[in-house]
Structure formats: structure tokens, C-alpha cells
Amino acid sequence: MERLPFVYILSSGRHGTLYVGVTSDLLKRLHQHRNGTTGGFTKAYHVHRLVHFEQFDDMPAAIAREKQLKAWRRDWKVALIERGNPEWADLAIGFGFEPIR
């Protein structure tokens, strides 16, 4: 996978705690979240399942989208996730990550 900007949403489980982030290296960032090396919110609340992501051509566009999503109400974020991932499957598995227990 090329190093392109991504906005992503992690969840602790179906309808669980949500985290919105932006990165230029999605695989590296997923590895950091899943191994707890990022610390902070995602580690404290066990928010490690990739439930939504969007790819962008440039970082300013990705950052603008991240800010937009962070300002959204929770029910709007849930609707966004469920439009593309109604089962809240861990999309990181499609990138070769092991399922979370």
C-alpha cells in the first residue's frame, strides 16, 4: 500500500467507543494502535478495531475530513460506519492483521 493520507475510525466493538484519526501510513498506525504503542485514549479504552477508512490524495484534505468527522454527532458517525460496514467487521483483517480477541 502506498503512503497516502487516510482518515480512519476505530471502535472498541459494535456500537462501542469510537476514535477518529488521520495518518499518512495506515498500516503503521494500525500496528501502533493494536499494540498499544500510541498510548492515550485508544489504549485506555481498548479502541483497536478498524471499522471505517477513507483515502485522500493529500494531507490537507484528509485533515479537513478528520476535523469534520470529529465534529459530527455520534449517530452520524454510526450511520457512516453502518453504510459501508453494517456488521462492524474489523477491516484491518483485510490488511493482514490478526483478529482481535
Rank of each mutant, 00 (worst) to 15 (best):
R74Y: 14
W76T: 12
G96H: 04
K77H: 08
Q68H: 14
L30H: 04
E2Y: 12
L69H: 12
Q32S: 13
P5V: 04
H48G: 13
M1H: 14
Q32N: 13
A89C: 08
Q68L: 14
K67F: 03
A79G: 06
L27M: 12
S11T: 10
E98A: 15
E82N: 09
Y45A: 14
E98D: 10
R34D: 05
D58I: 07
T23R: 01
P60E: 04
H15M: 09
R101V: 02
R73I: 03
V47Q: 06
D58G: 07
P60I: 03
G96C: 06
T42D: 02
T23C: 05
S12M: 04
Y8S: 08
R34K: 12
V22S: 01
G36D: 01
P99W: 12
A61Y: 00
A79R: 14
E82L: 10
G16C: 03
I63F: 06
R29M: 00
T38M: 09
R14Q: 15
F53R: 10
A89H: 09
G96E: 08
I63S: 07
P5C: 07
K28H: 10
P86S: 10
L18E: 04
R49T: 03
H33L: 06
R73V: 06
Q32M: 09
K77D: 01
V7Q: 01
F97R: 09
I93G: 02
I81P: 06
I9E: 02
A64N: 13
G13S: 13
Q68T: 14
E2W: 14
S11E: 02
R3V: 03
F97C: 10
G16F: 01
A71P: 15
E66H: 09
M59V: 15
Q32E: 10
G13V: 00
A44D: 10
P99E: 10
R14P: 11
L69K: 12
L26N: 01
R65K: 09
V51N: 02
L26V: 10
Y45E: 12
W88H: 03
S24H: 00
V78I: 15
L10N: 00
A62Y: 12
F41N: 06
G96P: 04
F6Q: 07
M59Y: 15
R74L: 08
A44S: 12
D75G: 12
A71C: 13
D25W: 05
L27I: 11
R74F: 04
R83Y: 06
A64Y: 05
F97L: 11
I100Q: 07
L80K: 05
F56D: 03
H33D: 00
L30A: 01
M59T: 13
D57H: 14
P5H: 11
N35A: 07
F56M: 05
G84Q: 07
G36A: 01
V22N: 01
G96A: 08
S11Y: 04
W76M: 08
V51M: 01
G94I: 09
K67S: 11
N85Y: 04
L26S: 02
L18H: 00
I100N: 02
W76Y: 11
G40S: 06
F95V: 00
D90P: 05
T23N: 05
F6N: 15
S12P: 00
L4C: 08
K43S: 13
F6I: 01
Y45G: 09
